[in-house]
Amino acid sequence: MKFLLSMLFCFSLFLNANEPITPIPEAIPYDKSKAALGKKLFFDTILSKDKTLSCASCHSFSHGGADGRMVSIGVNNTQGSLNSPTVFNAVFNFSQFWNGRAKDLAEQALGPIHNPIEMGLSLEEALQRLQNDAQYQKEFASITKHATITQNDLAQIIAEFEKTLITPNAKFDRYLMGKETLSDEEMKGYMLFKTLGCVMCHNGINVGGNSYQKLGAIIPMERKDAIDDRYALTNRESDKNVFKVPTLRNIALTAPYFHDGQVATLQEAITKMLYHNLGVNLSDETVDALVAFLQTLTGDIPTTNQ
């Protein structure tokens, strides 16, 4: 996987040398049978305690792979503290979760299932349910070549499906590949994006998702206690309010914004970012240009029927 990404990366570099943002490929290789089973599991409420929720409940295809709510609602109507990050293009992130505590998709996949405030189903019971289902047992066995379904099997198969959820052909990607031109406004927005310094955190193939940065780097932002930032992992003062930079791809679709979903609109998000992380207040024209640019980052959304 890492080899694949590095190859893609080198390839994309070739296309538009020196641009700090690189396009998503049309497709990436994946195991078809695993992904098919993973898709079934992704949409199956069997994986929640009360069978009301599936992965897709909080990573909805109609909301850019994220949740339209500020924070997601778990079983028994429990509320979380974090805004659901998008599952689209998550494969390109260098780690998973807001604080990067999972190293890849497989390591992340089981977390929400047994998290009491999310799907609330213990992994033993989850595996039991799947084992007891004849169809699931057969499908798992034919892929894994062993009869008992393990945690690793479940995680790998869900992850394989998530791998397929990429959104190529964004206007900006096509621009990078030389297939399209941007409007003046969009171009202005991109230039501002670079010169203002937005690109210093939001760069790479996923326009973000590849480093840990402080929210409120210049002008500090309020921090709620018991938030899942880097400090929760490392216990260093300097890591307070430090999160994995979220992707800006399809950002127009994934409101609300920021880790706690406190910002409702793109304009507000941009304004706050400019203030807290760059220490500037800029005109509405500037913000609008930036919004125009961000909208070019919306790609082809995967359909639920594939």
Binding site: P20, T22, N203, G204, I205
Partner: peptide, 18 residues
């Protein structure tokens, strides 16, 4: 360099670990 692509360093890290 002012413009940075964090993917590059991440690639190197992954390669070296492997």
């Amino acid at each position: 360099f002012l413009y940075v692509n964090h993917d590059i360093l991440n690639q190197h890290i992954a390669t070296i670990k492997e």
